[in-house]
Amino acid sequence: MRTTIATLLAVLLCLPMAIAADDSADSGSRLKIATTTSLYDTKLLDLLEDKFEEEYGIELDIVSGGTGIAIQYGEKGDVDMLMVHDKAREIKFIEDGYGLYRRCFAYNYFYVIGPSDDPANIKGMNASSALKTIMEMGMQDPAKSKFVSRGDNSGTHSKEKSLWRAAGVDSATINATGDWYVEAGQGMGATLMMAEEKQAYTLTDMSTFMAYRGNMTLMPLIEGSEDLLNVYAAIPISPVKHPNVNCAAAQTFIDFLVSAEGQEMIATYGEDKYGQPLFMSALGQCDVMGCNETECATPAAACPAPA
């Protein structure tokens, strides 16, 4: 009896040491990145992480969450850089002095997906008029046409709001217009599952949809429309605001991302699994992505000295 307890205690006491040991193994330079779920969930970053760690000896700590929480982490200086996809908020983040600059490194397109019989007849439209049509149909008969929104302030949700704006609809009051509009308040995966259950339309990033496609009957109805462009950008946190951030490592990683090698990895990722790549290379695509010259400059500008 005594020995059982003693053994148990010994085991329990060893465990914390095991975690501590696990921790000390990866000392050296670390780079903390906050990223969006749509980028992370594809496992593209795992691949880039392994290659980068091997080549540069800098340990990457990648935290994934919605764009909203990623920006919070950035503003408080808890991470060294952001990898997000919400141009308006990125620009504000830089204007507020938290970010150094914005570097466009990949892009793809959102999809508007829906039931294959397309009850609202949106096929062939651009995204904002499609949403407007779904709304008009839905207000007449919610049983026929529904839309599920992320409703979580993520980058995808921001995109949806800008599409409503383009369609002349106020997204702040849209929820009051009827049962056709469903606010999920959850991540992309959960939102897709909800749209599938309700046989509703929704806006999705391409990569999460690819991952879920096998479990779904909903189909992409609008793809490649110019207003569905989805640009991913990297932003180092300014050492002027937060002197502790590892700006040099962030620069190294960004240069790696936009290098020929990094771009090649991005542009071919997912081909074997989904039959088509999930992202497109940013190389020479500055105009397509709507990024300006400094947002595509290589190598990026140097780190300013901490204040």
């Binding site: 969930d41 991540g187 992309m188 995966g189 999460t208 991952a211």
Partner: peptide, 9 residues
């Protein structure tokens, strides 16, 4: 939670 959001149910 991650695997669920990636669709690996």
């Amino acid at each position: 939670s991650l695997e669920t959001s990636m669709g690996n149910l």
